[in-house]
């Protein structure tokens, strides 16, 4: 038995338990994963030329991407302690630091995700009713055109018309670029944590793929929730089913690696296998966030009627909870000496 008392540290601001990263980081990792998931699905559907079949994934769901990225970046920014110096991130590229190339990737993907939404804005605007407040803002960029019976929106400026035509002509090239950027963002949210060898729970290679798969799963859930097309819901429900299975496999794989690993990894696993995070991880995240949606989606596939909103909500809430647990537990579990 070893008991360590740290004295000479009757120092209020030096905490024996690290909690320098809190909820903003968890929220950012969740929103980044969600944005990455939606971007990857929208790109893959475009590359496979199935835009008509899965229109929600390509046209509606990507509206979430720039919003999620902007909110996520806002959380990331307020978490910086020396916030006025944030521009220093963009004075250098340091490949060894995941935060550095992650920041550069986000700088590229955020404006591009707005371009993606703008590409399909003309198609989706007529499906909404803008009789209220929003029409004033839209009229800065659009003119209403009532020529063929229904209300159409046309770009107000000719360079926007040209730009839209250029983007739509090259949309598969654009989709390939977005696919690569989406995967980088999805993996980055995991690698950000796994780069720290001082935090035994985070320092595992599985975390990158696990965060990517979890991000994809939340992306699929968002698309299911937004879609009205039965075939599209069924397709993304199937994809999500597969992703949840991979996620479960990776989680078991991670725990096995911990248990079979060196002392410090086994110690980390103890927090999830009997320790303080056991209930919240296995019951709330794995149970409610993965297994229940898995069962509901299976029932949907064999023909039962399932309210898809509940499935999507459980997956999204589970994804957020997973990141909160990982960020929190990672900082509790440290090297013992």
């Amino acid at each position: 038995m070893e008991e360590i008392i740290t004295s000479g540290r009757n120092i209020p601001h030096i905490d024996p338990i690290l909690d320098i990263w809190g909820l903003p980081i968890s929220l950012y990792l969740f929103l980044g994963g969600l944005a990455a998931g939606i971007t990857i699905f929208a790109s893959v559907v475009t590359i496979l030329k199935r835009e008509q079949q899965y229109s929600t994934a390509v046209k509606i769901a990507p509206i979430i991407t720039p919003i999620a990225l902007a909110v996520g970046l806002f959380f990331l920014l307020i978490d910086l302690h020396h916030i006025l110096y944030a521009w220093q991130l963009f004075t250098t590229i340091r490949l060894e630091s995941p935060m550095s190339w992650g920041a550069w990737t986000l700088l590229v993907i955020t404006p591009l995700s707005i371009v993606w939404v703008a590409m399909y804005l003309k198609d989706i605007l007529p499906t909404f009713d803008f009789s209220g407040c929003c029409s004033g803002i839209l009229k800065l960029l659009f003119v209403e055109n009532n020529s063929d019976e229904k209300l159409n929106w046309e770009w107000k400026y000719s360079f926007l018309v040209d730009f839209e035509k250029f983007m739509l002509d090259n949309k598969r090239v654009f989709a390939w670029i977005m696919l690569v950027l989406g995967i980088v963002v999805g993996v980055y949210t995991g690698i950000l944590l796994s780069a720290f060898n001082a935090r035994p729970l985070w320092n595992t290679e599985i975390l990158g793929p696990l965060f990517l798969v979890s991000g994809l799963s939340t992306g699929a859930a968002a698309i299911m929730w937004l879609s009205n097309d039965h075939n599209e819901i069924k397709m993304f429900s199937k994809i999500d089913l597969f992703l949840i299975l991979i996620e479960l496999f990776l989680i078991v794989h991670m725990m096995m690696g911990f248990v079979a690993g060196p002392e410090i990894k086994a110690y980390a696993a103890g927090f999830f296998l009997g320790g303080e995070f056991t209930a919240v991880f296995w019951v709330l995240f794995v149970g409610l966030g993965l297994v229940i949606p898995l069962l509901l989606e299976t029932m949907e596939l064999i023909g039962r009627k399932i309210p898809i909103g509940i499935v999507a909500f459980l997956i999204l809430a589970g994804g957020l909870l997973f990141r909160i647990i990982m960020v929190d537990a990672g900082q509790v579990i440290r090297y013992l000496y």
Binding site: L18, I20, W21, D79, L80, H81, H82, I83, Y85, A86, Q88, L89, S97, M99, A195, F196, N197, A198, R199, Q331, R334, Y335
Partner: peptide, 13 residues
């Protein structure tokens, strides 16, 4: 040059 992101704090065993 420090932005206060705390990545170094997380990386220190």
């Amino acid at each position: 040059e420090c932005i206060g992101c705390a990545a170094c704090i997380e990386s220190c065993p």
